[in-house]
Amino acid sequence: MPTKVEKDHLTGTDTTGHEWDGLRELNTPLPKWWLYVFYATIAFSAVWMIVYPSLPIWGVRGTSGWVAREALAPQLEAQRARQEPMLARIRALTPAQVAADPELRAFALAGGRIAFANNCAACHGAGGQGAVGGFPSLADDEWIWGGSFDAIQHTIRHGIRNAEDDDARTSQMPAYAAMLTPAQIGDVAEYVLSLSNRGTDAAAAGRGRETFNEQCAACHAPNGHGVPEQGGPNLADQIWLYGGDKASVMRQVANPRMGVMPAWAGRLDPATITMLAVFVHALGGGEQ
């Protein structure tokens, strides 16, 4: 930086000697204490770096030993203590009883929303909308394992087709690729689609009907409306977990995919599971 100090002719004041693109600055001296305050802030920052954890070195904590996470812990603890009376009441009740009490219901919906976002949204979506390919929507009115408060709570507690819980919901669909010819599978698919008025080939559907009654009706019910107690999904409605076109249905008949869900009983507090059941029930499809 050029430091040619000149005298400004108009004011008789020296310039600071600093020049930026031809702009020069008159030197109007600042009070000295101003400079000392600036030095004091530098000294303060140095002390601050030693006292508080501001050096990005792993394990360096600062002499005060202060850590944001540890400062948060007692606050979290205090919040939990504040929630505990409500949680204790929820723990002692069934989801239906919680939902019937306006105060508890509001608490459970708020708590269930958080627990859902933390634990369930990864598969079932942020709003419980699910995804094609085996992640059922929880916002609609079709329930593979039942949509009552108790059924939802049971499913959350024990999960589906997992090896860790003996009470897990389990159903098994055989792979019909080994038992039926491709033509038969196509006919069955046509019949299944015709149940929800999606069929295009009445003759094929007629042939498939017979095979359906022999092979499928036991779990999916003769009219295709499903058997929730056995986990046989409704095939006659407009909701398709693995896709509702003929190719998808045929693939599902030939080599079925079946989703799994972990048991949450050991992972989550019983009150949290009850709140989740209330929340999922209120997403829009809960049954009595």
């Binding site: 001296p29 009070p31 400079l35």
Partner: peptide, 23 residues
Amino acid sequence: ERLKPPAASPPAASPAAPLYANR
């Protein structure tokens, strides 16, 4: 009155005023 004639001595000779002064 306040318009002083240009400084007779070359600027380099005048000691630079301090940037900070006592109030």
